[in-house]
Nucleic acid binder design. Structure first.
Lengths: 300, 300
DNA sequence: TCAACGGAATAAGTATAACTTATTTATACT
DNA sequence: AGTATAAATAAGTTATACTTATTCCGTTGA
């Protein structure tokens, strides 16, 4: 014998009306149905909840105690329902985004606009390197990821939302900075500052060099875009980076762009989520927002 | 589609185990049974509570929200059950006693002993005159009543638990106080202080006088035993009262007892409750206690 | 005191819900 | 690819939640 919510509902109605018949009317039930539910509830708690003296129905002390609990339970059910309904909307709930480090440079810009459109969405932005990002995806932590390249290993539904041109940067006073259509072989004597293996930029660079049968004479390996930019600025060598990471430095002419033949290497940024994951309305909205914003910026 | 407690139980188990199969084992169910309950709960709230990615089961945000409510609901159910169990015992709960005013003199003594035996019972003692006591019985307010005489009108299960001898009192220095076996007719010149009509003592007195064909020459009517005692003490006249109301005054010799032939008038005190009312264990215990205590005092 | 009238309990039958076992589908592991 | 694991699906059974019809009981009114 176990208590059911139906029993509590019926009980509450009877407790309020102090009449089985009127409670039945209120619940659009027949009177015997009410009697049965009450009797079951009573037998499951082992006490009389009501007592009938003459033709009036009274609540016992057990009934009063039970009523308080029944009310709070039903109140909780109601608020649970309400909160569920809220989660169905776009303008509520939680949105967990993870981005690969390179994307960070304008993921923040995207997020700023999105949160302005949907202020009550609670956003978590997680900037991390590729390995831990994959680990987080494995644990289903992020709803949506922004990354440079959809990894083959993991099942990911990913769509490109924006071009990611990789360019070659140098100090503004580099001898070749005024040249046009520079061939790679002109750079055989240069030192290249490159990112760590596993980085998307690094992989793209290597593939580009392989295609052109080019091998740099010297490379210096560094982690993180900021470090590389500073190194190039300091004259340590050349580097291939996403144009989005150096927009500011180029306009301030603290870095220069070399016009290499075959460049920029056109790569793309992707918005993705685990295959099979049913995105919340909020996540869905964000995904769509990213795709729209990407094409809009491409046109502009 | 409506949420059931069963669904919440199953849901909570799955949420804790993050596995349908293990939850099923825990609940001694088969795995499909768990699947069904979860699916029903999900369809009734209109959101996925879990999502399956690969072979792992994750909770959605909706699931986390629901879990909190499910837990509080089940906690309330548990405490409701506990409180019900407490009410089944004698040593808890509420005991509402109503006594007719005359009984008050030792109802308090009885109660003192009873509450010492059952300290955690919350007792309400309602001292009131007969009319409102009957009204309260009609409204099923008291669990148990103590009164001088079971009224014919109302359906009452009443048992006598103690003798209630009515005696005649006078000032200690009254001329007749040393006499023995006084006949009523010797009191023709006396003034009698009598209680208001409707009082049990008054009714008993009148019946006694009628039997003896006696009519007092003068009567003064007063409400309440205290007033009557004080009046007699002040020499206003004689009075017939319950011996229990004047025990103290008799031992202190502030009042004297007249040895009237045919007295004391033997009346009795009754413990009763509405016919058909199922007494709580506590009320049952009190009723039995009163009956036991009554006979014990009668022997002593 | 005897119908007559509520109002709850009981009885019997039916639809729905909660289970079961058997099987299929999907994912991960080797 | 083949196997193992875990959830979903299908079909059938039992228990539960209802219904209607009827009985029982306490109150009211002539």
């Amino acid at each position: 014998m176990h208590i059911t919510i139906r029993q509590l509902q019926v009980f509450e109605a009877v407790a309020r009306q102090l009449s089985y018949t009127r409670a039945a009317e209120e619940l659009h039930l027949t009177q015997p149905a009410v009697s049965m539910q009450i009797k079951q509830l009573e037998s499951s708690v082992g006490l009389s909840l009501f007592e009938q003296l003459g033709k009036r129905v009274f609540m016992t002390q057990a009934g009063e105690t039970m009523l308080r609990h029944a009310q709070t339970i039903m109140r909780h059910l109601a608020t649970a329902r309400e909160e569920m309904d809220e989660l169905k909307g776009v303008d509520s709930g939680r949105l967990r985004i993870a981005v690969a480090s390179t994307v960070n440079y304008f993921a923040t810009r995207l997020l700023a606009t999105f949160t302005r459109l949907h202020p009550s969405v609670q956003v978590t932005l997680d900037v991390t390197n590729r390995e831990t990002l994959l680990q987080k995806l494995e644990d289903n932590q992020p709803d949506v990821v922004l990354m440079g390249k959809p990894p083959k290993g993991l099942d990911l539904d990913a769509d490109a939302f924006m071009d990611n041109p990789l360019i070659m940067i140098a100090r503004p006073d580099h001898p070749l900075s005024k040249h046009r259509s520079i061939a790679l072989k002109e750079l055989t004597e240069e030192t290249f500052v490159v990112r760590e293996p596993g980085s998307g930029t690094r992989i793209a660079m290597e593939r580009f060099f392989d295609q052109k049968y080019f091998t740099p004479s010297a490379t210096i390996e560094m982690t993180g875009n900021e470090t590389i930019k500073q190194s190039v600025e300091a004259g340590l060598g050349l580097a291939i980076v996403s144009v989005h990471t150096v927009e500011l430095e180029l306009t301030l002419e603290r870095l220069g762009r070399l016009d290499i033949r075959g460049m920029p290497i056109m790569r793309r940024w992707y918005v993705g989520h685990r295959r099979g994951k049913r995105l919340s309305p909020t996540a869905q909205a964000f995904r769509q927002f990213v795709l729209d914003e990407g094409t809009r910026q491409a046109v502009a």
